[in-house]
């Protein structure tokens, strides 16, 4: 994986494979829940007398859009994972490209998807006020950016402490210290960031079912990406 082009190609392909896997997962599991939420939303708007009229994009097309969107998700995060891999591979002490790839995929997936989910969990349709969408997007992506900054901070701590540690003759101090700083930073970030401002006025069972499926989908995505990247990288190494 010495050439950047080969690396990014393998990373994007791995992302697309993960996108296919998650599309199948969500078409099977998330779509019925989304349908249920939309029916509820329609009932509510009928009851309040507000008419949505015919939607511009039909539900059938939105299901195609689910797959299009998730493939795009795969290509985008595959590409960004490739960039992260190139930046981080020097810092990961693992013998094989497969293990390094899995480690970086875990770090990226945690930082940009799983950890932000714990603060701002996914909601089904029928939750979410259109008037607050810009605020919620700023909160969410601000959180993602700060989550990535925490990773950079931990790496910086490790790099600064490592030579000091060698001078003092204390072995293996930089890693737990970096981890400690990272955990402290994440805890502060989690506590200090404002919560999602929207009320959740949908039955809790529906919301938590959707959140469970959504979280499992994200975990599946990053796991498949890691495995696919490892296989592709190994094949290229032997080619």
């Amino acid at each position: 994986m010495s050439s950047l082009g080969a690396l990014l190609k393998a990373a994007v392909l791995a992302g697309l494979i993960a996108g296919v896997a998650v599309s199948i997962f969500h078409l099977t599991l998330a779509e019925p829940v989304i349908e249920q939420a939309i029916r509820l939303e329609e009932q509510r708007s009928r009851a309040s007398g507000a008419s949505h009229g015919e939607p511009l994009v039909s539900r059938a097309v939105q299901k195609v859009g689910l797959v299009v969107g998730l493939l795009l998700y795969g290509a985008i995060w595959g590409l960004l994972f490739g960039v992260a891999y190139r930046l981080l591979e020097r810092h990961v002490e693992a013998a094989s490209v497969a293990v390094r790839g899995a480690f970086v995929a875990g770090l990226v997936g945690w930082s940009v998807a799983l950890f932000p989910f714990l603060k701002y969990p996914a909601n089904p349709p029928a939750v979410g006020d259109p008037a607050t969408i810009a605020d919620r997007q700023a909160l969410y992506f601000g959180f993602v950016a700060l989550s990535i900054a925490g990773l950079a901070l931990a790496l910086a701590v490790r790099r600064i402490v490592a030579p000091v540690k060698a001078q003092l003759g204390i072995e293996r101090l930089s890693r737990p210290l970096a981890l400690g700083v990272y955990m402290l930073y994440l805890s502060a970030l989690y506590v200090l960031m404002p919560a999602n401002p929207d009320p959740v006025e949908v039955p809790a069972g529906l919301v938590w079912t959707f959140r469970g499926i959504s979280f499992a989908g994200l975990a599946l995505f990053w796991a498949v990406l890691a495995v696919a990247f490892a296989r592709l990288a190994r094949e290229r190494a032997h080619a």
Binding site: K63, L66, G69
Partner: peptide, 9 residues
């Protein structure tokens, strides 16, 4: 178009 993908992601 990508409505459902945004929700699930």
């Amino acid at each position: 178009l990508v409505h459902d993908a945004r929700h699930t992601a």
